[in-house]
Computed example of a mutant assay.
Amino acid sequence: MAHKNETPATVIYLHIPKTAGSTLHAIHNQIYAPEQVLHLKGDPHIDTAVAQFKQLSNKAKQSIRLLTGHIEYGLHEWLPQPATYFTILRDPIERVLSYYYFILRTPDHPRHEEMTGRQTSIADFAKHILGHNNQTRFLAGTWLEDLPCTAKTLSLAKQHILQDFSVVGLSEQFDTTLLLLKHQFNWPRLPYYRSRNVTKNRPNRQQLDDQTLAIIHKTQAYDLELYAFAQKQFEERVRQMRFPFWLSRIQHQLHQRTYPSLEKIRRVSVRHWIRQQWQKRGIIG
């Protein structure tokens, strides 16, 4: 693995579902050239794509700057060059709610008909469909094998964070996470982005009954502990950042706020210029 303060030859992004990954992928598309990215895809299973990646030649693997997808820890072992990881975690309760309502409102999702047909409750979704402690199993490298999550799994996930992850961001701190990624990987100025694949108009945790909330806590207990651990690491790292980081944060926030208005003005100005040219040529009156 590459040292955390170095720019690695390959960045491996573990995209845990419903953790702002779709938005981040749109940003990646503006930072990396298409030939530099290998996005492993599989719906609902990614085993085939991972197996195909492992069979690539070393020459093909060496051209990968960004390896991404719903993939778990461990793929660095199949790369001939140094690599480092990053991921984004999400508050486990919010993730359960977001995922549940996303499936209900997405007719082409593989589990949509099953859940709507059975009128699956949030509690049943957490117990039988979502999977227990998936964020922990992703980072421990035990998700694809569908191994049960234990205290040892949690310990392994924490160890990987400390040793092999350049950044572990938080969905709830997405802008700051982006700036940490920019700083870590020497990305150019961050492009304007809109949040994608957002589950809208869903109930929040305050509307859950005590029994449902207790079931979520039970099925995501290790994820809750992992998130608290990562949150502490994240906040400490942000506190240690120097003035240029905070200046770039202000610049990024201003860019996000002003870009839509400036783009609208630019489009209006271009249309006005075209109209003037057409009028000069008598194309329009």
Rank of each mutant, 00 (worst) to 15 (best):
M1T: 06
A2E: 06
H3C: 09
N5F: 08
V11E: 01
V11F: 08
K18P: 08
A26W: 04
N29V: 02
I31G: 06
P34Q: 05
Q36W: 07
V37H: 04
H39W: 13
T48G: 12
V50M: 07
K54F: 04
S57W: 08
S57M: 01
Q62F: 00
L66C: 04
H70W: 01
I71G: 03
E72S: 13
E77P: 02
L79Q: 08
Y100K: 00
D108Q: 15
P110I: 08
S121T: 06
A126M: 03
L130A: 02
T136C: 12
G141C: 06
G141D: 11
T142I: 11
T150I: 09
L156R: 15
T176A: 12
T176Q: 10
L181A: 13
Q184R: 15
Q184I: 11
S195G: 05
S195Y: 13
N197P: 01
N197G: 10
N197Q: 05
K200Q: 12
K200D: 10
N201L: 06
L208K: 03
D209V: 01
I215Q: 09
A230R: 02
Q231F: 05
Q231L: 14
K232R: 15
Q233E: 14
F234Y: 11
R237H: 15
V238G: 04
Q240W: 12
F243D: 13
F245R: 02
W246R: 12
P260C: 03
S261C: 11
I265E: 11
V268F: 01
W278A: 00
R281Y: 00
I283L: 14
I284L: 07
